[in-house]
Design a protein around this nucleic acid. Structure first.
Lengths: 146, 146
DNA sequence: AAAGATAATATCGTGTGCGATATATTGTTA
DNA sequence: TAACAATATATCGCACACGATATTATCTTT
């Protein structure tokens, strides 16, 4: 019986579980918007800066392009983004928001912060705990990023 | 521009990213064992207590049975677990380790703690940081679990 | 004990993630 | 400048996750 191999001693299992459960907590609001959590991440990247090539979006989300490309294709079908070939560099696909994609920012703002803070009400963590948590997660992300 | 909707302010995006990256860090060792990370989680559950029904494994991992069932089917094909109908309750499928599945515990112990601590060497977090992190993640998991 | 409710597991469809590989374009170098 | 390397993106295959639904067995209630 190796204590190191026990589920209860695993940070990774907690990260994996916490990520799944918190993502699930977004689902009711995201369903109302008609999108998934990874699609919401792409939208946040584009709300911050519109018209970016696939690579920049992938880097920002620390995902591979073979994950992001099909994601963007689905989002294009939904009519929330559009893609066009880069003008200087024809290899690039420049991704931009449609009117529908831009309008979703306000709807997201009306739904998501409220919806999440309601669900977080029963969480014992305080603001400073979250701030430290974010920093520690960034340390972990930095340690393992490629 | 809503600050609440910026990627940099999102705990969930950190959890999502940290979980992916740390799981990826397990991949070289797990590939050597011929399994995936979720399969490794199932093995840890069974190393701790052999012969469990699907439901108990799913509860322990906080996953749905429609995720766990196909996972177990793949593991059965790999010859690391076996499944048989419950004797008192014929609806149950009792999952148990094969000899191969039991032997993998020692191999995992030889590969994984070493492999992970090498990769963690450059991480600035100290032991007490990890301990607090685990507790805070448990708080989050508890808040959002169903 | 027959009927309906509940429980345990499985199946199906969709959307990620990601390794491996392909394709098209651009940059570099002999 | 023709050949070759590098880059940006896409395609393919496989393994999760998970909502919705189906199937089989047990439990409960009349």
């Amino acid at each position: 019986m190796h204590a190191e191999l026990q589920l209860d001693n695993q940070v990774c299992f907690r990260l994996y579980t916490a990520a799944r459960l918190v993502t699930q907590a977004y689902t009711p609001m995201l369903t109302e918007l008609g999108i998934t959590y990874p699609q919401y991440l792409v939208l946040m990247v584009l709300w911050e800066k519109d018209c970016q090539p696939v690579n920049d979006i992938a880097h920002r989300l620390m995902l591979e392009t073979n994950t992001v490309t099909p994601l963007l294709q689905r989002m294009e079908k939904l009519g929330i983004i559009s893609r066009k070939r880069g003008e200087q560099d024809k290899r690039q696909h420049i991704v931009s928001l449609t009117a529908k994609g831009r309008e979703m920012e306000q709807r997201a703002y009306d739904l998501i912060p409220t919806g999440m803070s309601e669900q977080l009400a029963s969480c014992p963590l305080k603001l400073e705990d979250y701030q430290r948590l974010v920093q520690e997660l960034d340390s972990i992300i930095n340690t393992f990023k490629k």
